[in-house]
Structure formats: C-alpha cells, structure tokens
Design a protein around this nucleic acid. Sequence first.
DNA 1: CTCCAAAATATGTTCATACTTATTAGCATA
DNA 2: TATGCTAATAAGTATGAACATATTTTGGAG
Lengths: 232, 232
Amino acid sequence: MSGAANSWQAVRAEVLRRIRSREWAPGQPIPHEADLAQELGCARATVNRALREVAESGLIERRRRAGSRVALHPVRRATLDIPVIRMEIETRGEAYDFSLVSRAEEVPPPAIRARFKSAPEARLLHVVGLHMADGKPHALEDRWIDAQAVPGAGTTDFSQISPNEWLVLSVPFEGGDIAFSASVASPAEAEALGCPAGAPLFVTERATWRNEKTLTSVRLLFAPGYRLHTRL
Amino acid sequence: MSGAANSWQAVRAEVLRRIRSREWAPGQPIPHEADLAQELGCARATVNRALREVAESGLIERRRRAGSRVALHPVRRATLDIPVIRMEIETRGEAYDFSLVSRAEEVPPPAIRARFKSAPEARLLHVVGLHMADGKPHALEDRWIDAQAVPGAGTTDFSQISPNEWLVLSVPFEGGDIAFSASVASPAEAEALGCPAGAPLFVTERATWRNEKTLTSVRLLFAPGYRLHTRL
DNA sequence: CTCCAAAATATGTTCATACTTATTAGCATA
DNA sequence: TATGCTAATAAGTATGAACATATTTTGGAG
C-alpha cells in the first residue's frame, strides 16, 4: 500500500496519486470521507483536511450531500506574492530609491471617476512617482487617492516615502482587485522610465476598498524586462 | 452562517479587526492560541484554523515555539485562476476555435534546451497554434514538448484539440512555474494575431515538470487588450 | 403526474484531549 | 568565549464524537 502514515499530507498525497493515475477519473465521484478514513486508517477530520486542501488547489470539487468529485476541467490556481516595491527591490540586493514626480489635487478623468464613484467635479489626490533600483528606473507609479476616505493622505508629501509603501503601512483595507496587462511606452513614459518609446511595459492596475468605498487606485508601469513569476 | 460567535470565521474576523485597528501592531507578537481560545470562548483548534487562514493570506507569520506575530511588511497574496483557454473563452459566451499552425520535431534553441536540460542534438516536439474567440485571434501558443517524457504526444496531431487542453487532460504533473511579462508583436506575431506590428502583447510563459523532468514549456502571446484579473 | 414537505446523507464545523515537532532559552561544558 | 545538551514551550497534528447545514431523495397530498 502507498499511504501508510496517517497524516493529512499522506492522505493528500494518496488522493493526488489516485487522481493522477486516473484511478479516480475526471468527473467521477470519489469515495466519501468516512469510507476513505476507514480505508486509510485515520480519522474523518484528517481526510477532511486533506480533501479541503486538494479542493483549494482546484483538482476536486466538493458539495455537501452530493460528495466530492474529480474536477472535469482542472483550473490551476497560482498564488502570487505582491510585495511592497521597496521590499521587492531590496530583497534582490539592489538599492531602492523613490522620487516624487508630481502631487496635486485634481479632478480625475472619467475612467478614474467611475472607479471611485465620485461626483463629477470632486477632486482626488493624484500622485505620480518613480521607483528606482540601483539608480535605474524600475516602475512608474500613477496613483489616485480619495483623501477624504484616507486620513493623513492629504498631509503626507510622499517625497520621503512612496505612496505604495505609505498606504500599505497606514491604511487598513478590506479588499481590492488587481489586473495585469501589457502596454507600450508613450513618449512621456519612455522619458520617465529611461527606455525607448514603444517599448513593451508590464502593467498592473490595482484598486483597494473599504466599506464599499474605493480608497485608492494605482497604475504601475514596469520598465522593460520586468517579469512576474510564481510556482504552481 | 459565519455569524456564530465561536466560528472560525468569527475568530478570523476578530483577528483581522485587531490587526487593522493596530490593536496588534505590525511586528508585534499576538496572544498564544490557547489564550485567544479562552478569551474568545472557543476551542484552540478553532483559533488554530482561523490563524492558519490569516497566515496564508500573509498578514501574520507563525513559527513553532516562537508564536505568531503581525507581519512587518505585509505581502498581499493573490490567487489567480488559470483555466484551460477553451474554457476561458466559452465561459465568456464566445465561440472557441483552435487552428494548428505548425507541428514538427526540432532541435530547440538554446534557451529552450536549457530549460529541458536536454542533450545538444536532442529533438523536441514543437507545436504552434492559434486560439480564437468568435473567429478572432485570442492567443498564439508556442509550445515545446518532451515527447519521450509525455506518452502519446508524438502520435497526437493537435489539429482537433489544442496542446493546451490535451496536456491538461492527459498529462499528470507535479509542479510548474509561470511567469507574466510584456512584449511587442513581431511582424510574424502581428500577422498571426491580426494586430499591428509593435502592438503590446501580454505574455505568459509556463513550464511543467514531473519527477524533476520538464515535460512541456509554453509561451502564450495574448492579443492586444487581454487582461488578467483577480480579487485580493 | 406534479408539487411540496420531510427524511436521509455527505460535507462542514466545533470541541476536548492528547500527542508531536520545531525552536528557543538556559545551562553546562570545552 | 564559543559550543553543545536539555528542558520548556507554542504551534502543528490526530482523534472521536457531536452537531450544523446544504442538497438530494423520497414519499405523500393534491
């Protein structure tokens, strides 16, 4: 027999083995927790823990009363770590620096206004800055902040600390969304990032909210060559 | 519901509240599981479950004997769903189609050979194809497969099923890595994707392995406008 | 036969308890 | 002072039992 030990990891390993070996085929139901527990010689709670982990990875689907079944179209799930930019750079052993490009209260363009659901003439704090690694441009940060909803934002000048880091440290938030895409450098962006106009830029756009209200929205343009990497 | 005072969700919510309110400040240790259990009137296992979830989200760090502490530099963790391309398109209600561009056994370029750790003269299966949504180009797939390590790959012609889907359905794998970046369309890529040369393309590069051996390596070029989106 | 309520059932959760393991701190030794 | 052993400790895990909850099945009423 394969899974002799009765740890939940061993149960998970055995479950994965059976799925990979097609002993349990895609779309088919797998034995009930109680049966598996008896077969593998452990408690149902142990099987439950193992199956919960497998379900989180997307390989099986579980429903009360209906039981568990091997997912028909396995969705791989990857977890991305999104660190504060300064940490990301310093972890690579490079020197971090941030320079503020502009900071102003402005009436946002329609796309941003829609995201904040703010009034047509309402002003938001608009901060642009450049993150640098070893003196070279790393990422251009273009951020809008609802100063009303973020206490202290209006009185921070962001020349000593990037809004990226200040917000992470100061503003508790409940949720957010993030999108990744590709763009080409406009002349102005190329100038700031020190790359040719038309160069491919990796873009992340993020919004974070609390109490149904958007607190801040940011667009990060990464200098050419940037790669976001993870295991799965 | 998650409202029950002594549910693990309630414990998690309380823990998150204390972190957000700075009652537990970044870098500081939080009470032991046993103490929290007593204070919140639940079992230690319940607290353990809650803290494990919070730790997975990156907000606290846990170490045996040392206890748990609020993370000093909170790393946001986002989970990305990476579906089979056909499913992704059909879920949006669009018609999926795949067309094979080329399929051949070739000696791979050095970058690919390094990834497969294959011998200098060794040949790999090279498959290029185009995924389409509602008749329009969606993504260009450029894939290398170790036909020796993937049974059946050599005899599948991939004109009826994309290598993307075939591999997901047929090949059990243990792990992989994935990277996201930006690129600009070369003339050939622009031709295939029906976009102007120089257009920004979102790129994913993935490798999957089993038993320390790389099974397949793929580069997906997404047509301009593609966005990868998730909650956090 | 259709529709709705009740029973059955598999997963989900909580609990008390016991044991395991990694890590630290303190102490003794070289 | 540096090093290695040992004990203390907090998280990690396992268990059986009980109850909760969602969902399907069944069976009865109309």
